[in-house]
Design a binder for these strands. Structure first.
Lengths: 342, 342
DNA sequence: TTGTATGCGTTATCAG
DNA sequence: CTGATAACGCATACAA
């Protein structure tokens, strides 16, 4: 039924192994027979069976993707399509393909990873996020299974190849930008504290505040899950302080959109009454009202480099652990303004 | 190094084939030996090798996903994470996993599909969109390879299992809703005409307009690619007509967001000056200003049913072609209003 | 430069 | 109920 290497061999009057070598473009085969074999392949419409090849060569040319559990709202963040686009490109460049781990809950996700590793379906894994105390990381480390994380690992930084932005510096810089605009009451609206990136950004914010000699107040720090639900309350709380902030550093564009919405509801005008900066620079920032000043963290490249370096690590197991820092850029739009009169 | 079925067999004092049967939970094996074998598996930390299993059983338990080319901006639409969530659930339910085809251009995408099929990496394919004259569909049909499309196939509807909404009726209904609110000048802002869904929605719109005895004007129909670029111009054009529309039917939430933005820029207030309805009901609709009235097409279920039915088709090849229609629901928010005085 | 033989880890087909 | 043994389709060490 299906045409195999043997059929090709027969037609081309060579041994199956020769056909195999032609597929691999082995230089020790003469051009003449290569040509003959290729003709036979064409004539029969032959295509190598990836499964068989994988079994024999013990390599799947596939990388596994681990996303946050799909039940999680984070999943909806436009960050993911974009990072996948980068991963896809990086994989495709080296003829790898992508396998998605599936799972609704944390538990299912973890099992999915174990399954991928044990059943040898993938040659390596990319974690699309970095959180505290991640059992998955512990497991992969222990198994010595090739993987890279996008973001900064919580622990074992020296042992894990990762692709990250300098979120500390980026946040420091963007906070300094607000300070330069004359703001002295700047609040930080962070996301889930379980993600390492949240902490990095918080620390950068703090550094800028302290460097400028401004008071670092706990009331100015809030961590709300996401969008509608909590994010909204956070804003209400912030604005009802005795000295409400005049500027907000929001850790994510999508969250910032929710913030913008809430501010509008409360009758606050951005940027006249309050300035807002956020992170990621996804498509939405351009079409929000007003367009958001946002830190472009170059999501595509995060994915691209992750795939590229994972594959290098797979193919050259002696490759050292790497830390790749992707540059960021502050994209100034219309959501920030010099403070009127303090 | 790696522990195989043979190691388990040796330890449990049975034949490898018996171990294989225990894995498959074959009822003809006595509980006693099953127990013994399972103990051995545990003790050795055995895990079946998926690749080997696939080769022997000629089934990969994997379904391939075909998304629009990643260069395309459509890729950024929150529709995709959500539909993937559904697919993921549907696949996971039946112990299948997901393989992503990668590719930046149409050409690469097409090659990716051929590769998936020929190399037998996947048992079936889900097309996450439906467009005109899709070579991929033609190819899969010709190869008689199992696949389902999300959306309505352009051709060969009777031969392709697909999961869709009744977009015609949904758009008709939502347009009628605007008519009931007193609107008589209603424009349609559609997306890319290459997608079948765009046409269905346009036709539903037309039907409602004609049913109500309103004039169907070409000037009220615009098709712009996406967001910023063209969508913006479309709005300018519409509003500079002699009889500008008082309501807009926009074919996609993300596009609607762009529209809202442009309207705001032009000093138009939604819904006081102009009403807007859109489609998909993604997360963003809630946090836009104003919150958008949107048709919830139940994206998750589109994906879930697609996976479910594809797998059924794979496992029972005699299964008939199916057409699954996912119900929709109009979610009324704050972007529509009774017309003041015509 | 090419062919032969064997193995990759399972499942499936026979027997018994 | 269980055990040999032959596929599955390809890669590779070893021969020639």
């Amino acid at each position: 039924m299906t045409v195999t290497i043997k059929d090709v061999a027969k037609l081309a009057n060579v041994a199956p192994s020769t056909v195999s070598r032609v597929i691999a473009d082995n230089p020790r085969i003469s051009e003449k027979t290569k040509e003959r074999v290729r003709e036979a392949m064409d004539k029969l419409g032959y295509h190598p069976n990836f499964i068989a090849r994988s079994l024999a060569s013990k390599s799947t040319q596939t990388i596994g993707l681990v996303m946050p559990s799909s039940a999680n709202k984070v999943f909806q963040n436009p960050f993911f399509p974009e990072v996948i686009r980068g991963l896809s490109k990086g994989a495709h460049d080296k003829k790898y393909s992508l396998h998605m781990s599936t799972g609704e809950t944390e538990e299912e996700l973890y099992e999915g990873v174990i399954e991928m590793v044990q059943s040898r379906r993938v040659d390596g894994i990319v974690l699309l996020y970095s959180r505290f105390e991640d059992r998955i990381v512990t497991y992969l480390l222990e198994k010595k299974f090739p993987f890279v994380v996008i973001g900064k690992p919580y622990k074992h930084i020296e042992e894990i190849t990762h692709v990250d932005n300098d979120n500390y510096r980026a946040t420091k810089e963007v906070t300094e930008y607000l300070i330069e605009l004359g703001h002295e009451r700047i609040a930080f609206v962070g996301g889930n504290l379980n993600y390492v990136v949240t902490i990095d950004r918080l620390l950068g914010y703090e550094k800028a505040i302290r460097n400028a000699g401004l008071p670092y107040k706990d009331e100015y720090i809030s961590h709300e899950e996401f969008l509608k639900e909590g994010g909204q309350e956070a804003i209400t709380d912030l604005l009802s302080l005795d000295e409400p902030p005049t500027a907000l550093v929001v850790a994510d564009d999508l969250m910032a959109l929710g913030v913008l919405n809430k501010l509008d509801e409360m009758g606050k005008v951005v940027p006249d009454d309050i300035s807002v900066v956020s992170f990621n620079n996804v498509l939405l920032t351009e079409i929000s009202k007003p367009p958001l000043t946002s830190v472009d963290i170059n999501i595509f490249n995060l994915g691209h480099e992750a795939a590229k370096n994972l594959i290098e690590g797979i193919e050259k197991p002696k490759e050292p652990i790497k830390r790749i820092i992707i540059p960021y850029e502050i994209i100034k739009r219309a959501s920030c303004k010099k403070i009127a009169n303090p």
